[in-house]
Amino acid sequence: MSEGEDREARKGAWLLMMFALGWRMVTGRSGKSRRVTSAEAAGPRDFPLPSGRDADTETQAVTSGRERWGTLLVACSLIAAIAAGIGFLFIYWTDGGNKLLGGTLALSFAGFGIALILWSHFLMAHREATEPLEPLLSPEEDRQTAADDFCAGARDVKRRSLLKLMIVAGAGVFAAMFVSLLRSFGAPIEPALYQIVWSRGQRLMTADNKPVSIHSLKPGDSVTVFPEGSIGNDHAQTVLVRVKEQFLRLPADRADWAPMGYLAYSRVCTHAGCPVGMFESQTNLLLCPCHQSTFNVLTGAEPTGGPAARPLPQLPLYADSEGLLRAGGRFSSIPGPGFWGGQQ
């Protein structure tokens, strides 16, 4: 471990040195100004391509100092890059950790990059060059000739309007053929989209396939249930909660949907389809953790906050003669996020 730390410390020192050098570059404390004026570099005003690169026009005295500095810096970063690269190889072959592996890789690349840039800063003459921009729009006659050529060629094609029509029709058929292939990717939306797994008489089962009786939960408790035979079905997942009966404020037509304060709602959020996983017994709210929508279980899971707009579908319940909870029918609406035509 200490060896690794030592290595990292050394790397840190390298990094610091690099930054110090970089800072010197940015603040420009080393070297002297040697800007070549645009007039010098551009040459004559008629902008020919330069006729070849002749020797540096700068004074030798200024150059040599900078060159010495630059060579030293470039050499330093190249050495650092090569050392880090060798370090990378060593760490890779000895299965070192991610930090060292990536750290040496980064240092190696940074070394090469910095070397190249220092090279361009110190050891390349900075000449400002100017080039003409030809107007993009071609001269009138060029355009005319091109258009004429096209029309002449088109005239050479013996005109048969029927054939042309057939070509167009053929292209249409080709397009239709290709677009039709998309069918393979789709799936029929019916019945999957409208499916409600629950049906009347199905027992409520927990995730470990145990039936739920009217004694299973205390008021304030909740459990995830599935229809008998479809354990783990994500579309049928339902949250069963128990509340004190006197607090219920369900719509009149759902008065008998909640025996002994047991309420069952679809566990798929009507907003974006996340599982509405949490029940909070003090406020009697269900919460979707994805976008923080809350639903009041007492009033039929009407949304009380967050971006959801529609209540969670409710599953009517009844208790059979053995005291086991069963579905009294289907969900009050299609579970899951809303869609066009999804509200029957």
């Binding site: 570059m25 940015v26 420009g28 070297g31 800007r35 220092l118 800063h121």
Partner: peptide, 10 residues
């Protein structure tokens, strides 16, 4: 990039 374009020009 700022360093690349502005650095080293003295």
């Amino acid at each position: 990039t700022i360093w690349i374009e502005k650095g080293g020009r003295g």
